[in-house]
């Protein structure tokens, strides 16, 4: 399969890049590591007239620690760089746990944090070649008007399938977004729409330039559990991140987030009430598992059945909570 034809743009500054985004709006696609985008382009899921390679922009590939504020990860920081960072490993273990499960080591050398956050949603009826999609009459996410997964509705249920955003939710991370009118910050929790098609709340002339991990989130113990059939390389069929802080045996604070099962990653809001101020035990962890499985709304977007994936969210949440609790 060959790539569709496009004109390659290589901006040198963020200003130049957002200018290009502004000018070409519907006809442009940002390419960072390209690990997800290029195969999708071969499948004709994207046929942009312009491909903007942002790797030539200075200053977007770094991990910068500012005492009192936290850590800034440039959007182009590779997943391997985050995985290899001893600082991240020590202070934000949940992110370390999640990042090391993304794809395979080779893809992590190319894939970026910004790309992982902006990853397209995935579905068996969507991530297929043009020839294949023609055979099913296309789907609502691309070229068609029917959702094969939930044919009654008009909504796309493609699953958000990145690992790191679940960890970033647990860390209350924020992203820095550039546009022609300047920069703004959005909490990662406010970034996603839970719609399979327009998955992310960014305007067409905006791009993410960095990710902030607040200092207040440092020192939480963490765990990330990922369901996949093939251990060496797979998107999450279900993923659970847990960040937890204890004082003695008592849980002081906890955040639980799930990914891979809904069109967006979600925090499990009530996990706090089930754990904070109590001693961590199997029973409490089981309760959190139940809560998480209620947030999960998997549909037939993957090869495993929705029922199984929801069940795994329950079990993995329990295990991730126990693991995070044991890790302090």
């Amino acid at each position: 399969m060959s790539l569709p034809t496009f004109k390659l743009l290589r901006p040198r500054t963020v200003e130049e890049a957002v200018g290009m985004l502004h000018r070409y709006q519907d006809d442009i696609q940002i390419c960072a590591g390209g690990t997800d985008l290029l195969p999708s382009m071969k499948q004709r899921l994207f046929t942009p007239k312009f491909l903007m390679d942002i790797r030539g922009i200075d200053g977007l590939e770094r991990i910068r620690v500012t005492p009192g504020l936290g850590v800034e990860l440039g959007a182009l920081t590779t997943l391997s760089a985050v995985e290899d960072s001893g600082f991240i490993h020590r202070h934000y273990p949940v992110l370390h746990e999640a990042v090391k499960t993304v794809a395979s080591p080779i893809l992590r050398n190319m894939g970026t944090m910004g790309g992982n956050i902006c990853l397209d949603t995935r579905c068996l009826w969507y991530n297929q070649s043009l020839q294949w999609r023609k055979s099913c009459g296309f789907c609502i996410k691309k070229d068609g008007d029917l959702c094969h997964v939930a044919p009654g509705g008009k909504k796309c249920w493609a699953a958000f399938s990145a690992d790191t955003p679940a960890a970033l939710l647990c860390l209350s991370a924020e992203v820095n977004v550039a546009s022609p009118s300047g920069f703004r910050r959005i909490a990662i929790a406010d970034l996603y729409t839970n719609d399979g098609v327009n998955r992310i709340k960014l305007a067409k002339n905006e791009m993410i330039t960095s990710i902030y991990l607040p200092e207040a989130s440092a020192g939480y113990s963490g765990a990330y559990k990922k369901l996949r059939i093939r251990g060496s390389i797979d998107y999450p069929l279900a993923g659970v991140a847990v960040a937890l802080k204890k004082k003695g045996k008592i849980v002081e604070d906890v955040k639980v987030a799930i990914t891979g099962v809904n069109p967006a990653p979600h925090l499990v809001p009530d996990a706090l009430h089930a754990l904070v101020g109590r001693e961590l035990n199997e029973h409490a962890a089981t309760v959190v598992g139940e809560l998480a499985s209620r947030v999960a709304k998997p549909l037939t977007t993957s090869l495993l059945t929705p029922e199984y994936r929801r069940e795994i969210i329950r079990v993995y949440t329990k295990r991730a909570v126990m693991a995070a609790g044991a890790a302090t």
Binding site: L124, W125, C136, G137, L146, C147, H148, V149, P151, L299, T300, L303, T305, P306
Partner: peptide
Amino acid sequence: HGGSTWYKGK
């Protein structure tokens, strides 16, 4: 596999 049966419809 779950989902609609497009072939039997349109």
